[in-house]
Design a protein around this nucleic acid. Structure first.
Lengths: 234, 234
DNA sequence: AATTCCATTTTTGTATGCAATTCGGCGGGG
DNA sequence: CCCCGCCGAATTGCATACAAAAATGGAATT
């Protein structure tokens, strides 16, 4: 009825989530059901369900009887979340070192090669940033899968949205990307020779470097959409 | 913070959750929206939202176009989840050792004393089991709070539902409860003297003992609803 | 007797109406 | 001049109607 033939109802959850991650919806912005249903061309019911899910993800926070606002993260949030992420991803890397199959190891090698190709295709303009992000995500996901603990994968997925929100890769320069690639190689080597401690430590170090990168740039956009009229505590 | 949870009338989410935890709704049982709305006396709309939230918690799993079923956990699930729990709670204990206030330490002492009182009030019949669970939860929650990392607390809350589902405390005998109490004392001592490594290790050990206790009894009810309903400790 | 196909039944997905609640401003009183 | 309470507007929470998809059961056919 509403959309051109064939297109079934769009997924509200995915639509809003990507809008937040891509920065089209800014932290602090209020989202009313009516606004979203108008924008997306669906009724309020599916919008409500999507909001419930986004709340569970921690991407939006509910305001009593007044809908939700896009969540804003403080420096402290970043530090705390990255602590957890380092813990979980380090654990995952350690288990991956133990439990990886040879096929998975090959896939990791491939992911690193791809990463390298993206990098040598230099001139990292926006479009290439996206490719690099894909390669990076692929590598990490392969490690999560190799840990053979679906619950762990699930938990990591929860803490991984934050760096997405900050879109930290947009601020990487070529040198920093090369550094990240080197770290991936270290991790890969540790997993290849099944050295649990090394893999764990290398991954943790890698994560903390990512954290510091975010912290270094957070002042750029940590402030929410409305700086002036703001009630801090709630 | 992250949890909205403003309950005005009858909160469907809480009602269904406690029903699952208390074992009134058995793993594998299918929950249709109509059934729940009839049972709880509300319309389908709030039921749907509650289901979305329970899905995010992992307490129910959706069936394509067929509603949800109460999730059932395998031994492997238990092992994997407890690995994560040991990781997170150990981390929390370590940070609690570092960042606890003296007041929080006092509260922990109080929680341990209460625990001890419940124990010496022996003859652990059903009712006392509940008290002991409360004391246990209180102690752990105090540690989580003392870590001063809300995100960590949030994540732990996600992995802590599992032992609730298995209601492991119902199978503890007096001796085992005394052992658990001793472990709490150890953890408390470590936190008191701000020994990070000790606190972490003691907590991890404590968690793994809980895991083994669950694993030892899991065969009793790991299977789903199709088996005869079972009320532990009766 | 087994299988396939169709009609019926169940049950979810979506849309919308209505009541309840909260916010924002406005006017009166101290 | 400032504070307090009231009224209208905005917006969610819940209930219900309707449509669509999947299962279910039965009948006809091989």
């Amino acid at each position: 009825m509403q959309f051109g033939g064939g297109a079934v109802a769009i997924d509200v959850y995915e639509a809003v989530k990507t809008s937040i991650v891509q920065g089209e919806l800014l932290p602090g912005q209020r989202l009313t059901e009516e606004f979203l249903s108008n924008t997306l061309g669906v009724s309020r019911t599916p919008v409500r369900e999507a909001m419930k899910r986004l709340e569970a993800d921690g991407l939006v926070t509910p305001i009593k009887r007044r809908g939700v606002v896009v969540r804003s993260f403080t420096r402290e949030d970043v530090q705390q979340i990255y602590d957890i992420r380092a813990l979980l991803e380090g654990f995952a890397a350690g288990h991956a070192a133990l439990h990886r199959t040879d096929e998975q190891l090959g896939q990791m090698h491939h992911a690193v090669s791809q990463y390298e190709r993206c990098l040598t295709a230099r001139i990292h303009r926006r479009q290439h940033v996206h490719d690099i992000m894909r390669c990076n995500n692929l590598f990490h996901q392969l490690i999560h899968a190799s840990a053979h603990n679906p619950h762990l994968t699930f938990m990591i997925g929860k803490v991984i949205v934050l760096p997405l929100v900050f879109r930290s890769f947009y601020w990487y320069n070529t040198l920093e990307i090369a550094g990240s690639l080197e770290e991936h190689k270290h991790i890969l080597r540790a997993i290849a020779c099944q050295d649990v401690e090394w893999a764990t430590a290398a991954m943790r170090s890698h994560i903390y470097r990512g954290r510091d990168h975010v912290l270094a740039h957070i002042s750029d956009l940590a402030t929410s959409i409305t700086d002036a009229p703001l009630k801090p505590g709630e």
